[in-house]
Amino acid sequence: MTAIHIATAPMKRRDNALLFGLAMITMAFLGAISSAWFGHYRINLTPSEPLGLWRIGKLDRPAAVGDLVFICPPQTSRMREARTRGYLRSGLCPGGVAPLVKSIIAVAGQRVAVGVGVNVDGRSVPSSNVVQLDGQGRKMTPFPGGIVPAGSVFLHSPFAGSYDSRYFGPIPEAGVLGLAREVWTYAP
Rank of each mutant, 00 (worst) to 15 (best):
G137A: 13
P47C: 05
A28G: 09
P62L: 14
V101D: 07
R138I: 03
H40T: 02
F20D: 11
S35P: 05
W37E: 06
N16C: 08
F38I: 05
R80P: 02
F20E: 08
M27R: 12
G66H: 04
L19Q: 09
F20S: 15
M79E: 03
V130D: 13
Q110H: 11
K58I: 00
S127Q: 13
R55G: 03
M79P: 02
L100K: 13
I33V: 13
G115A: 09
A32N: 04
S35Y: 02
L30N: 03
M79T: 00
N119L: 08
S124V: 14
L88Y: 09
E81G: 14
D121V: 07
A28R: 15
V118W: 11
N119A: 07
V112W: 07
A23G: 14
H40Q: 10
P94H: 07
L18P: 06
L18C: 09
A113D: 01
S34N: 03
G39I: 12
A28N: 05
P99F: 07
S103R: 14
S34G: 04
A108V: 02
V118D: 03
L92D: 05
Y87N: 03
T46P: 13
S124Q: 15
P94N: 08
I56L: 15
V97P: 04
L19G: 10
T26F: 08
F20W: 11
G57F: 03
P50M: 04
V69T: 01
S124Y: 14
G57S: 08
M27E: 04
D60M: 09
L133H: 13
V130P: 08
I43L: 14
G57R: 13
